[in-house]
Each structure stands twice: as structure tokens, then as C-alpha cells.
């Protein structure tokens, strides 16, 4: 059940990000200066931390999405769903640890 809960939570989180993302990117059509101004406000540690959360959500949602595809279309998928969920979590950690280190050293290291 928790894979399903996490999939929904990350999905809704990504939806709200895309909502804001489409709006701020559309701003370039209004005026490139306004766009630059808005993008400049993102360059602070709080948004830097939010970006870690965004990547964490996208990476989980992507791998778990593949797991759900296998549960739906691979005849043995439902039997191995727990193993596949464990694989999703392992891949998520393996990708998130180096990313978080590198990303945060950019955010806080200047």
C-alpha cells in the first residue's frame, strides 16, 4: 500500500511543480527581462532544497511507474511486486545520494 501512497503523493507534487513551471516558462513570451528576474529569485538555498525534493519525487515516480507497468503487463509481475518495490527503493537511494551531495555542494558552496 505504501508504494501506492508514495506514488500518489509524488505524482501530485510533480503536478504542482509542472503547474508553476509552465507558468514561469511561459513568462519568457511576456518579456525575457521578467523571466530572468523570476528565475533569479530561484537562486537561493530554499529552492535548492526544494529541487532535491523534486528530483527525489521524479526519480521515485519514474522507477515505481516502471514497476506498475510490469505489474500490469508481466504475468509474473504481481508475484514479484515486493522484490520490484525493493529494487525501486535501492535504485532511488543509489541515484539520490550522489545527486544530493553534488547538488547541495553547488547550492551551498557557491
Amino acid at each position: 500500500m505504501w508504494s501506492w501512497v508514495a506514488h500518489r503523493v509524488t505524482g501530485i507534487g510533480i503536478f504542482f511543480f509542472l503547474f508553476a513551471h509552465v507558468l514561469d516558462t511561459a513568462l519568457v513570451r511576456v518579456s525575457p527581462e521578467a523571466y530572468n528576474e523570476v528565475i533569479d529569485t530561484y537562486k537561493n538555498p530554499i529552492v535548492g532544497l526544494l529541487e532535491v525534493g523534486l528530483v527525489a519525487a521524479v526519480v521515485f515516480h519514474a522507477f515505481n511507474g516502471l514497476r506498475i507497468v510490469l505489474v500490469d503487463f508481466w504475468s509474473k509481475g504481481p508475484r514479484y511486486q515486493k522484490h520490484m518495490f525493493a529494487t525501486v527503493l535501492v535504485l532511488w537511494v543509489v541515484l539520490m545520494v550522489p545527486f544530493t551531495i553534488r547538488h547541495l555542494s553547488h547550492v551551498f558552496g557557491g
Partner: peptide, 21 residues
């Protein structure tokens, strides 16, 4: 939505989600 709660709950060990799929 393949939450697998049913498979975990079944006292007869039926792979319920597998059957639904």
C-alpha cells in the same frame, strides 16, 4: 490500483491482485 492490500490480507493465500490483473 494494485495496492496489494488484498493479497496481503487473504487468509487463504490467494494471489488476489494477480487474479485481478
Amino acid at each position: 490500483r494494485t495496492t496489494f492490500n488484498c493479497t496481503d490480507a487473504c487468509p487463504r493465500g490467494i494471489e488476489v491482485t494477480k487474479a485481478i490483473q
